[in-house]
Simulated scan of single mutants.
Amino acid sequence: MKFTVTSRGDDISNSLKNRINQYLSDFGLKEDASEPELVITVGGDGTLLQAFHDYSERLDETAFVGIHTGHLGFYADWIPEEVEKLVTHIAKTPYHIVEYPLLEVIIKAKDKVERHLALNECTIKSIGGSLVSNVDIKGDTFEIFRGDGLCISTPSGSTAYNKALGGAILHPSLPTIQISEMASINNRVYRTIGSPLVLPQHHTCLLKPLNDVDIQVTVDHYTLEHRRITSLQCRVADEKIRFARFRPFPFWKRVKESFIRE
């Protein structure tokens, strides 16, 4: 099996990366950063998020597993003290693949079209002033949004920015996307739904800015500035991220430990 190890870049993570490389090489596995079958990330959720984008063109052939060297994460679920156990599993135990849905984002401007994949979320905001945008769902106008912006998240990303905006936490196995508002304007003249919306796999959300403002779009941790866009389309992507599981991954236990741990 071909593998690669990525690191957050701090001394602890780099040292752990070197140990893992040596252990797996001793077991006869081949390091291949260009076409890995398994990507092992050392650092935290951000490190795995970066690895996902680095290998987003080969998601069908690559699985991910994360080791955290900081706070316990939702993606990085192994700890440094378990490295030997994890390495032995990788070398000798067939792993179970778990697939989670991703978000497809298509940004259209007058002169170009861009397609992106998000593991966590996409956001759209205006640069100065409020965002005014049509919100179309499944081809029909649902509302005209006025406010700071909108966040469209995956179930995996529902515990991130979406949660801070008051969105629901969704189990990452659900093939859905969630739309959450950022400081919407609601008064006697303007009105939005005022609640997060969860869309199924076969529904598409199309945002069409109506006011003449510069737009900032984020896809996970990447910021994309567009002076003008005509539309931003979001839906559940055809691609999925594949995680290598060597033991049970109790999602709701992880939620409890992260947010309400006693």
Rank of each mutant, 00 (worst) to 15 (best):
N120F: 07
E121C: 00
T123H: 01
I127A: 10
L131T: 08
L131E: 08
D136F: 14
K138V: 08
F145C: 01
F145I: 04
R146C: 13
R146Q: 13
L150G: 05
L150I: 11
P155T: 06
G157Q: 06
S158M: 05
S158P: 07
N162G: 10
L165R: 03
L165W: 01
L165A: 10
G166F: 02
L170D: 02
L170Q: 00
H171A: 09
P172L: 08
L174H: 03
P175Y: 02
T176Y: 04
I179V: 14
S180V: 09
S180R: 05
M182C: 02
R188W: 14
R188D: 15
Y190N: 07
Y190R: 07
S195F: 13
L199K: 05
L199D: 09
Q201F: 07
Q201W: 02
Q201S: 14
H203S: 11
K208P: 11
P209S: 15
N211K: 11
D212M: 01
I215F: 11
Q216R: 09
V217K: 08
V219W: 03
H226F: 14
R227H: 15
R228I: 09
T230G: 12
Q233S: 13
Q233F: 03
A237V: 03
K240D: 00
I241Q: 08
I241C: 06
F243Q: 01
F243I: 05
F246V: 12
F249E: 03
